[in-house]
Simulated scan of single mutants.
Amino acid sequence: MTLEIDTGTGLMPVHIWEPTSGTGPGILLLQEIFGVSDYIQQRAFDLAALGYYVLAPEIYWRLDDTELDESAPDLLERAVAVVSRVDWDLAVSDSVAALEYLRGRDEGVGIVGFCFGGGLGYNVAAVSQPDVLVSYYGSALPRLLDLQVDAPSLHHFGDADVYLGDDLERIIKAIDTPDNEIYRYPGADHAFDNPLPAFHHADASALAWQRTTEFLSRHLPTDRGPR
């Protein structure tokens, strides 16, 4: 299902996946640089199957010429060019608007983000106080570490993350608090959960998803009902 949310400066398209029960805590699912791709849609389906009401906003909605062919050999290059045109502050405020839409359902809200969305989710969590945050290898984290996230948070990183590189140790030191869980995956590079062969690390992906579902079940249980 697709609908539009009023951001205050325009209507942003968002995609919705409802749990079988029709009710459940909300998850704001934030995309990688490839947009709301087949992969992100699959993760949305996976979360809905767990009992969550999932909303994935089209973060690129303010831009033109953003169509990405996931089979194209220049996919990564083109995606980097698209994301470089994103206004970060607007992306944050748009995501907050999406979170507030979920919060209006009064069933609890969490954020799950991947890569670009992992960093964006961290920023959104710092300014909007969700119940829980799950961030996969947030690409913007090195410049966001002065922000404070109070929500219980789960962070996944590949030990061989070339993109984060030397910043990885600094990130982990900054976010290592008693309420957070941080996991590193030997041999896994950046974007290891993405099923495209160029990125995927099967063992890391499976284990990280198991930890994600367990973390969400503890901090945002699907059977807690309206608050």
Rank of each mutant, 00 (worst) to 15 (best):
D106G: 07
L144P: 06
V112H: 05
D69G: 03
L63K: 09
L99I: 04
D64R: 13
V92K: 01
L207M: 10
A72E: 13
E100P: 02
G117A: 03
D166T: 13
N180G: 00
D131V: 02
H219Y: 13
R218C: 00
A97N: 07
A198C: 02
E18K: 15
Q31L: 11
D87V: 02
R218E: 10
E4K: 12
L207I: 14
Y163M: 12
P19C: 04
F192H: 11
H156C: 03
P178T: 01
E4M: 04
Y137R: 07
A56H: 12
L120N: 10
A140Y: 14
E214S: 10
T177D: 09
P57E: 07
A126C: 07
I182L: 10
V132M: 08
P195H: 07
M1T: 08
F157H: 11
H219E: 02
L144Y: 01
T20V: 12
Q42W: 12
V124T: 07
Y163F: 14
K173M: 05
I171T: 06
R103E: 11
Q41W: 00
V109S: 05
L63G: 12
P226F: 04
L68M: 05
G138Y: 08
L29T: 01
A188W: 08
G121H: 07
E169W: 00
V36H: 03
L55V: 15
